[in-house]
């Protein structure tokens, strides 16, 4: 059975190494500051007792006043899973650091989020639209996208 790390356990681990990066945590997830994302990601991947080498999915949710990026992580060696979230305020050109350097699996998913949700990922090698064509107006998965 894959054990899901609670937000609290994860927050303790992260806060020990990077103070003040964790905003808040819930039972299943832990919110971290978007600016610290790459270094926290690398920490999560490379710490032996976490070893989250597998990025299950990157999702984005539009909560009107802010965007939320959700990283579902999996450690195949320890059979451990965790959820890391980050908030991204602002509707005009929201921007989050990319984690492609840490997990290559984020490459296409971050492009998809840029395409459909309009969140730019800083440091992504190929930040282009993926599902829609270049020149498409707007980002369809946003709640305010007009049909």
């Amino acid at each position: 059975m894959t054990r899901a790390l609670t937000g609290g356990e994860l927050a303790v681990q992260i806060n020990d190494n990077f103070p003040n990066t964790v905003d808040e945590y819930t039972d299943i997830s832990c919110y971290i500051q978007s600016n610290d994302l790459p270094k926290v990601a690398r920490f999560l991947k490379e710490t032996p007792n976490l070893n989250f080498a597998f990025l299950r999915s990157v999702s984005a949710v539009d909560y009107i006043d802010h965007f939320e990026i959700i990283y579902h992580l999996l450690s195949m060696r320890l059979n451990l899973s965790a959820v890391v979230k980050t908030k991204c305020p602002g509707r005009e050109d929201p921007c989050v650091p990319s984690v492609v350097d840490v997990w290559r699996g984020a490459n296409l998913q971050e492009r998809e989020i840029w395409d459909l949700m309009g969140i730019r990922f800083d440091g992504h090698p190929n930040m282009k639209r993926i599902m829609l064509w270049e020149g498409f107006q707007g980002h369809p998965l946003r709640k305010d996208f007009l049909r």
């Binding site: 080498a53 195949m76 059979n79």
Partner: peptide
């Protein structure tokens, strides 16, 4: 591969 152990109980 030693990279994964699906029977692991963390």
């Amino acid at each position: 591969s030693p990279l994964a152990n699906m029977y692991a109980e963390a």
